[in-house]
Design a protein around this nucleic acid. Structure first.
Lengths: 370, 370
DNA sequence: GTGAAAGCGCTAACAT
DNA sequence: ATGTTAGCGCTTTCAC
């Protein structure tokens, strides 16, 4: 991707050796609950109680135990507890790619909720490979995770449903559960497309282009469908003819957005507004327009999708459809905790509404609208 | 932060109820190694061997065991294994904020390496709170992680060193180990500052401003120091006087960058180039310059730091100092695995070199240089 | 090559 | 309120 010039820099990293302090495993013997018990002069059961149900142990005994714990530096082992009780205090989180801000924000939302309930997150990137996903699922099962948050890589939910049927509370992220007995948390992409188109129509645009990714991606298809719905609704009104044309590009990247500008400007007549299936595409379109000496929103109004961080920082700032990423993860985590904790649980599909954030790229900065 | 207009959107998410399939915990009994053993007509020891040392078990026995495993759907329990053997096949990863792309990329690098060694990642965001960090460290210890990758929140490394001394292989991320007996992986920020300043000096700039964050942040101080070093080196040569002035802002955000433009343009005489302590600041500066109808690089050359994704997508594309984020994480993970696996291990501090990526913001796009 | 048995560190009945 | 004890599922000697 990068074709820019690069300053020469040493290819290898500098390495500083420091003296060996502890070769191999330092033979520090782990303190067990038994050590604590004998030091405190009580039984292991009492220590266990002091740990898990402090209210039922006598105040002075409790104190002695706590002191013994502090003195020995005892740290309980989750694994041992899990063996008896079953809970691993761990949930698996499988996303397509942790480096993608969409997923990162989602995971962060999940983390904040799960932390409060004492769960650790085992985070995995499937890289959209069902094989890698399956590998991770297997590992998560071996670790006996108490729950699973997952954005499935493939269309097939069988393996995931199997895990869920085995008693692992599971919530699908950004993916509908269809008929499977699972919880899911999604964002309404059809509505998002509608919001974008509706906004432009309201501004008076009657010739809208849609720069879209592959129709095989569900999100792309939905967003387009939403936009078309809005256009059709408008078009039906008397004395109103709205043109809607689509340009499909092979991937949702800035590069393809920039290249799409050629096709966009070649349209006859030239559209007055363009919706992009995501912000990267929109960014590329903005770049291409700048090269062609065209300035949004006057020459062409531009709307993106996702509202990534930099959307608001661009000049002109990019109008975009925001998805509640953090909330998505947080809500999924809440469902998970509910299912993992509560006895009776009804599987639910929660669908979030996207939100249009209007900025300069679709609206003249100083324009006054009634 | 967002003061833009927002299209009305329903505040509550849509909820769809689906019929209850399994109330409470489905009473699916976990298959144990014993079940497999009896189905295969062998002892549990043999199953264990078939699992861990298949070469020492007779081919036909092995086959019978594997069939029994497949038929029963047996999945071994890591926890039980850990109890005997000690390994949890898990490493803790503590960063300041998982939602920050710098850390996300690092974690991704670590994941890709650790996956190959069968480790799962327990990811934690400390939010720069030593308290939260401590909480997580405690939990990780309870989970008996086989290793720890951490960007410490505070200056105090005592608690971390204690864990390390307890036998948990530990690698510091983007932080020097100083005198503690730990591995660390860092990027040379002084050199990064140097690269940025040197580049501008080479282009002939003799009046450079540095928009910096708080000097209390080590990275900020180092980058500034590096830039000053380069300037001083240049200034020493005869007939060459280089001016270097600093503008300190309270936080590394685009907002503060934009606001700094006022102070920047008020400098007498006005500098011809500006280095920003990170790309967000640079982005804000670019925005502010655009408002002031000034166009980089002619009116003012701009250099950022970090080379975030959008740096290359801006117009003009932003010159920036890149940090090998992914490699940082991957290398740290490799050190970790080495320490966790190998017997004798020497603690090492690996320092990466940043890399200057030159783009239009510091160099006229069509300028030809010999 | 395979099996019997003794734990790993903890929890949870059940006694006292 | 506290102690005794029997496992949880697995690995690992040590016999056979």
């Amino acid at each position: 991707m990068r074709t820019d010039g690069v300053e020469p820099a040493p290819p290898t990293a500098g390495i500083v050796q420091r003296p060996v302090r502890d070769a191999g495993r330092p033979a520090v013997q782990r303190v067990t609950i038994r050590d604590v018990a004998s030091l405190a002069g009580v039984s292991v059961a009492t220590v266990s109680n002091a740990l898990n149900r402090p209210s039922i142990v006598a105040p002075d005994t409790l104190e002695r135990v706590q002191e013994a714990i502090a003195r020995t530096g005892f740290v309980r082992s989750t694994a041992a507890g899990q063996l008896r009780g079953g809970k691993s205090r761990t949930v698996g989180v499988v996303v397509l790619d942790l480096a993608n801000p969409f997923f990162t924000d989602m995971v962060r939302g999940a983390e904040d909720v799960l932390r409060k309930h004492g769960y650790m997150l085992m985070v995995c990137s499937s890289d959209e490979s069902t094989e890698q996903e399956l590998h991770y699922l297997r590992l998560l099962e071996e670790h006996r995770v108490d729950g699973l948050l997952i954005t499935p890589a493939g269309h097939e939910l069988r393996e995931i449903a199997k895990l869920a049927a085995y008693g692992v509370p599971t919530v699908l992220l950004d993916r509908d559960a269809n008929d499977e007995a699972l919880c899911s948390v999604t964002v309404d992409d059809i509505r998002g497309g509608q919001l974008a188109a509706h906004h432009l129509l309201e501004l008076g645009h009657a010739d809208i282009a849609f720069v879209n990714g592959p129709a095989t991606i569900r999100q792309c298809a939905d967003r387009r469908e939403g936009a078309m719905t809005a256009v059709r609704a408008k078009g039906r009104r008397p004395r109103r003819d709205v043109v809607f044309r689509e340009i499909e590009v092979p991937a949702l990247t800035a590069d393809h957005g920039e290249r799409a500008v050629g096709a966009l400007l070649a349209l006859e007549p030239r559209p007055t507004a363009v919706i992009c299936a995501n912000d990267l595409l929109a960014l590329g379109v903005l770049k291409g327009l700048a090269s062609a000496r065209l300035a949004p929103p006057e020459d062409l109004a531009v709307v993106g999708y996702d509202d990534v961080t930099f959307a608001s920082m661009l000049s002109p700032a990019l109008t975009s459809v925001r998805q509640p990423k953090y909330e998505l993860g947080a809500t999924a985590a809440r469902l998970l905790v509910e299912e993992a904790t509560g006895g009776a649980h009804e599987h639910r599909s929660i669908r979030f509404e996207p939100e249009l954030v209007v900025r300069a790229s679709s609206r003249a900065p100083r324009a006054i609208r009634p």
